[in-house]
Amino acid sequence: MNGRLPITLQIVLALLLAIALPLFFIEGAYGRHLITITLIFCSLAVSLNLVMGYAGLVSVAHGAFFGIGAYCTALLTVNQFSFITSVLAGIVLAASVGTLVGLLTLRLRGHYFALSTLAFTMVGVIILERWDEVTRGARGVSNIPRAGSFSIAGFDISFKEFWPNYLLVTGVFLLFVMVSNLIIKSPFGRALLCIQRNELLGAVYGVNIVKVKLQVLALSAAMASVSGSLYASYIAYVSPNDATFMRSFEAIMSVVIGGTGTIWGPALGSFFIQLSPELLRGFESGRLLILGLILILIVRFYPSGLAGLSLQLWQALKVALLTRKTSKEVVHAVKDKSAP
């Protein structure tokens, strides 16, 4: 573990940071809106990282899984069902569809897997646009109620307010991080590694490749659906645009830029992607060009992404402060330590 913090401590620190952001650093309704939305997309990226980062399956279907959650919550809650019912419905539906996608793509890897999940997402959008009676077609669903309210010890807590909703969104994101971490440090995580690196070796050593693939796709799809549910209830409006492959690509970019297969990378990447319109405001239509350039540079020179970069900087800082080495020696020591 070369001196990294234990995961529970990392999660507590992340929680404190998440609470501190709107308290001290972010002002105004727009800033609060941005950070809420960003955290929702963080959980989507974490769910994608589970299949993309650990099992090596680049799924373009996660926009559709997100859409399943968003539409389940939208359509059920406008029809007076509770938020929680709609989330559970989304989980069940997304997990089933995830399993189905898994069954159809069992023998596919790499680009072929990505392309067939892309096709699946496009079919999903067509269904949303054409099945008018159920999905309300291209108009989308509006006036989706917020998650609701409950009372604890005499306090009425309503998710219509910023803080309860923000803490809910943060809680889901941190729960997903915890789930990912439990998974990779278990025999199931080893099985995922086999799927990514060497299916044959895995099979010979007892991994039921088919079962593990379907399970991880189902779990990841269910997680993506939960982020979709949070999104729908927060934004109060969903349309087929929320379930397109653009959403998938955004999530994929977040994972790649943040660091594929790292615990916090997908979240770092999501912040980068969601805040880039603000950071690059002066460039207008050149924004996508700059994002694309950054993506290429990271894939080429920094496959461990922002997470790997910050870890290296942190280690460099530690080495520099503790040992007073010259800059060259520091670079050397850090390179040795952070080898994959």
């Binding site: 998974i183 278990s186 025999p187 199931f188 080893r190 086999c194 050593y205 007892g206 991994v207």
Partner: peptide
């Protein structure tokens, strides 16, 4: 598994003794 350590590779041999059920993880 080229990217993993010697220990993590050898641990693959123990997979059959472990439940690799998602639930137990």
């Amino acid at each position: 598994i080229e990217t993993a350590s010697v220990r993590d590779n050898v641990a693959l041999g123990r997979l059959k003794f472990r439940s690799n059920q998602l639930s137990s993880a």
